[in-house]
Design a protein around this nucleic acid. Structure first.
Lengths: 336, 336
DNA sequence: CTGAAAGCGCTTACAG
DNA sequence: CTGAAAGCGCTTACAG
């Protein structure tokens, strides 16, 4: 029983075509008519039926947000909540709505069918964790506008990434500047973008300073606190004086393992994390880490996506956002 | 250029009405016809246009999920991510999609208009934090099917809640059983459901055991870690031997404050939290707390909502899920 | 600047 | 059990 365009038109004494023009900001409407129609719309709290618009115009003002589910530890830090917040907020401002899809592998086929063929979405933002994500390939094969948060090794797509490599490089360089020579790293899974790129940043820093790379100072883990703990146990026999953990959660695990081993932080072993989670400034000692603009990533991804939807261009848009080293207590300040 | 019903009908040699019947599981289709049409649908990866279905049938297989934004510390624990996961997962199974709305106050009017009048949603799940939530009132005034996660003090609506009161009662009773007489509590905001009900549970436990209530042993806070820290500083002059914090985050803040005051946990002051966040089993000492079935709440809310959508009934559905005391180290085991 | 009319892709009485 | 046809509420050439 909601009102229709026809009802509004009757009230305003015009045709429904004119009401439609007013709603969609068409320039070809007499100012006086526009004012009158707008008043009637306001007064009746009229909201056009999205389904009808979609069917008639082929646009919905709805975008999809695809987030990988099932990735372990995915929801133990606020990355996705903040990303969602950014996406939602930007959509609110631009009068779009967002449809959320947690990509559960067992429903992926159906999900992609719905996303691509249901006609409900003007475009999609996909937050990819894996370096080679089949969802990205599927979107690329379609002609649905989409924006990748992350990157893809081979496909030319619109993407927005944070500078993981440089962040890890800065974190490692900071430890090098403090005089450390035996810097271990706890990496994330190497099939994940953040896992891979942060490890590359570590390697790059060593190389820049001419330090040899010691494989025994690398422990691959899974971004989780228990994972960081276990990795640190493997590293300790090799006597690192500093550890760069590719996530704050793993850094917390590392600190717990160091304490359990009777080692002091940062006096015996310095620790640097990555992410700047809320907890990083509250642990003891407070954690030196890399801060990334997560909410802003969501906002910007949406803004670029809507640009692409509204003004299709042939070239692809690429953005890499900078990150920031946040120095706290866990790495010390003394030269060794 | 996606296929339409008409295309499928042509391929299968039937009318589009028949294809529609097959897709919607109408019983009045010859088995042989059904098989043939199903094959063509499968082969072509056909997905009906949701907008057209919505317009014709008045149903979309889309539900909305409204989550309050801007609540402080809202995304510092995994409550909402888990809830979203449950909702999304249940929707996947039942072939529904979910539209996400973070309720930003400045967009609330427009949001409600879209939710109620755009015709896009078959129903909505609203996760309410506030005891008297205007969004719940607005939904109640509409005729849109909805399911409240939480409760409302005066409106008769479909809801699903967790037993906050009993959880807090159990937590407090546990401390009482350990022999504590001066049990302080750090509450959440009293205009929030979880804040209010958990405080009531604390009071009920005291009353059941005939203990006097001491107002100076109550510190209202905001569910956050720094909030728990500050509240504990206010409580310490009154020498509690135990603290029940209405969230794990506040419990962590309490433990930090106790350590800073040179007090041992649990020997000098016992601590119990609420939520059983992942971190609860990793802090030192590990945290005794209350576990609630968060993912399951999301799942069940969706299932009830879809029931309501598909089989409208006049009475309202009420569910209260039980919670569970998880005993760890932070409250000790010795009688005092 | 405005309106009449076609059409978007479905569902669903209705008739057979 | 099946099909022809109306209709859901919009948008958009087209004509004036």
């Amino acid at each position: 029983m909601p009102l229709t365009l026809e009802d509004i038109a009757k009230h305003a004494g015009v045709s429904r075509a004119t009401v439609s023009r007013v709603i969609n900001g068409d320039a070809n409407v007499k100012e006086q008519t526009r004012v009158r129609v707008t008043e009637v719309i306001q007064k009746n709290n009229f909201q056009p039926n999205i389904a009808a618009r979609s069917l008639a115009a082929g646009r919905t003002n709805v975008i999809g947000l695809i987030i990988p589910a099932g990735v372990s530890a995915i929801f133990s830090d606020p990355y996705f909540p903040l990303l969602i917040q950014g996406v939602s907020s930007a959509c609110n401002i631009r009068d779009y709505s967002v449809m959320l899809w947690l990509a559960e592998p067992e429903f992926e086929r159906r999900m992609m069918r719905q996303i691509l063929h249901s006609g409900l979405l003007d475009g999609v933002v996909v937050a990819s964790m894996l370096i080679e994500d089949p969802i990205v390939q599927a979107l690329h094969d379609s002609n649905k506008p989409f924006m990748l948060i992350g990157r893809h090794p081979s496909l030319d797509v619109n993407y927005l990434d944070v500078d993981n490599t440089n962040g890890a490089r800065e974190a490692t360089l900071h430890l090098l500047r403090l005089g450390h020579k035996r810097i271990a790293t706890i990496t994330g899974p190497q099939n994940m973008i953040a896992g891979h790129d942060r490890f590359q940043g570590y390697l790059r820093a060593l190389e820049e300073r001419g330090l040899a790379f010691h494989p025994e100072l690398v422990a691959e883990s899974d971004f989780s606190e228990p994972g960081g703990y276990a990795a640190t146990r493997r590293l300790l026999p090799h006597h690192p004086t500093a550890i760069f953990a590719a996530s704050d959660m793993m850094a917390e695990g590392a600190m717990r393992a160091l304490r359990d081993a009777g080692l002091r932080i940062p006096e015996d072993v310095a620790v640097v994390g990555y992410d700047d989670m809320p907890n990083a400034s509250r642990v003891t000692p407070t954690l030196t880490t890399i801060r990334q603009p997560t909410i802003h990533m969501g906002i910007q991804a949406v803004n670029v996506l809507i640009d692409i939807i509204q003004n299709p261009v042939s070239y692809k848009r690429h953005t890499v956002l900078p990150v920031e080293l946040v120095i706290r207590e866990s790495c010390g300040t003394l030269s060794k």
